[in-house]
Nucleic acid binder design. Structure first.
Lengths: 197, 197
DNA sequence: ACCAAAAACGAACGTTCGTGCTATTCTACG
DNA sequence: CGTAGAATAGCACGAACGTTCGTTTTTGGT
């Protein structure tokens, strides 16, 4: 179906737009103009702005997974894979996978004070991401690469915080050193609980 | 002047609104309704929405300083003051000084992809905040409370990242443990470079 | 108590928003 | 090919947006 292809290309642009202007600032008229199509033609693909937002979140998730998470699965289980996830995250900001910086960091701070399905979808996506991080840490521990006493949730919290801090300093403050600083902090934190036999 | 009083009460509400709906989602009509005054009456105080946003940023800055930074000045210079700043930051999220979570974290991620005076004002406010953090660290080092070899910018980056991570987990994920986790990470990080004589 | 100045109001502007409808164009299968 | 059904366009709507303007109310010094 042609509609499916169109829908996908709409969502790709929608995700880019949203990373720059926010999910609420994402507007059907501007998006349609940018794609050279009519408001109503675009609108018909989703039926409501909320559905467009929800679809954009899923599309962003897909892009994120294929840029950050899935490539890391090529690395050996345990510590190497955990480090690869972190490295990929930093690279994902540097390569501007989303032109306005991390889509999910922006969406998280945009919707944390609101209610409704969009907020819930973002919260769910972030829960799933943090959970993946925790799983990667737990696997590294179970493989004997990390101190068995490591606090999995605590470490995942700290790594994720560093990701957000990196995105902030890189995007808003245009601090060129932000990403290397983040990577250094991550490596130090991981080395502290690493077991090298 | 009565106008000054009105202006201040407008800004207090504007800042609360913005922390919930974003600085762009902050709307003159809704704000006027909420305050029981007319759109045009409110508008006249600022002359444009952009001026309202800029004034709201300054008002938020004032609230932040008096809740987080200034109280810490009562603590002795050096390590105690640095820890007080961190503690106050965590408490400031817990006490919901801004009802939608940290105003500046939200504004940073909302405007990092944009251009113009509002973005610049936010960037300036954040530069100044990070600088204050760096100064507090440098003072603690100079007082002999921290390892003289401590990387000031690196440590400030990491502390700030943990603040953002705490706000994220507390507000979006409604993780009750987020703040204690952040505080634990901060304390561990500071203890690692502390000099106890 | 008066009166100029300051503050607030009410109505309207042009624009853009999301959303419905109906008509037209395209697409893909028989 | 032809044609049913999908895809897109066109147009209109009501609401909300920021903004302007002329008028009315309130304020505070004399």
């Amino acid at each position: 179906m042609k509609g499916d292809r169109t829908r996908l290309s709409i969502l790709e642009r929608a995700v880019d737009f949203a990373s720059l202007q926010g999910l609420e600032g994402l507007t059907i008229g501007r998006l349609a103009d940018d794609l050279g199509m009519s408001k109503s033609g675009l609108f018909a693909h989703f039926g409501s702005k909320e559905e467009l937002q929800l679809a954009a979140i899923q599309a962003a998730r897909e892009r994120f997974l294929s840029e950050v998470f899935r490539p890391a699965l090529r690395e050996p289980r345990g510590y190497p894979r955990l480090v690869a996830i972190c490295r990929n995250w930093i690279a994902y900001v540097e390569r501007k996978v989303f032109p306005g910086g991390c889509f999910f960091a922006a969406a998280s701070f945009e919707f944390d004070g609101r209610e409704g399905p969009v907020r819930d979808a973002i919260a769910k996506a972030m829960d799933s991401w943090v959970e993946s991080l925790e799983t990667a840490i737990a696997k590294a521990r179970d493989e004997g690469h990390l101190d068995p006493a490591v606090d999995v949730k605590q470490l995942a919290f700290e790594l994720n915080s560093l990701f957000f801090g990196a995105n902030f300093a890189y995007e808003l403050r245009t601090d060129r050193d932000a990403l290397s600083r983040a990577m250094r902090a991550i490596e130090n934190r991981l080395e502290a609980v690493r077991i090298t036999s």
